[in-house]
């Protein structure tokens, strides 16, 4: 495990790795499944996808192509974006069919403005 968030401790305001070499699992194995979910990469984003349920036709192409499995589905329909893990690569917006255009990439800075002014994105 390379992320200091796992089993880390606070030390002078920084996160410190905990395991000594004797405590490491054999061969650098991560001995559990799905641990990538604990690594929240959402704050790597500089642009974010905004999804419109009204325009969406649920073709699920965005879900197929998302490299971070950050498109959330419910009952076979796109429910929303997992912003804890979305890195803002924009592939979902690119793959969404042109005529559908249900996803728009918006700079993170604008999101803060929108939230502050409580204004609709469109």
């Amino acid at each position: 495990m390379s992320d200091a968030t796992q089993g880390a401790s606070e030390k002078e305001g920084r996160l410190e790795p905990r395991h000594g070499w004797r405590d490491m699992p054999l061969g650098g194995v991560i001995p559990k499944a799905g641990s990538a979910t604990e690594y929240e990469t959402g704050d790597w984003r500089s642009i974010r996808p905004l999804h419109s349920k009204e325009r969406c036709i649920n073709c699920l192409l965005c879900w197929v192509y998302c490299p971070d499995a950050a498109i959330r589905l419910q009952d076979g329909k796109v429910e929303g974006i997992d912003y804890e893990h979305c890195k803002g690569c924009g592939i979902c917006a690119k793959e969404c069919p042109q005529k559908v255009h249900a996803i728009e990439m918006v700079p993170e800075g604008r999101i803060k403005e929108m939230e502050a002014g409580d204004r609709d994105v469109r």
Binding site: S2, V29, I30, K32, A33, G34
Partner: peptide, 10 residues
């Protein structure tokens, strides 16, 4: 008992 093999380590 699924595991991840060969991860990156910084």
């Amino acid at each position: 008992n699924p595991v991840t093999i060969g991860p990156i380590m910084f």
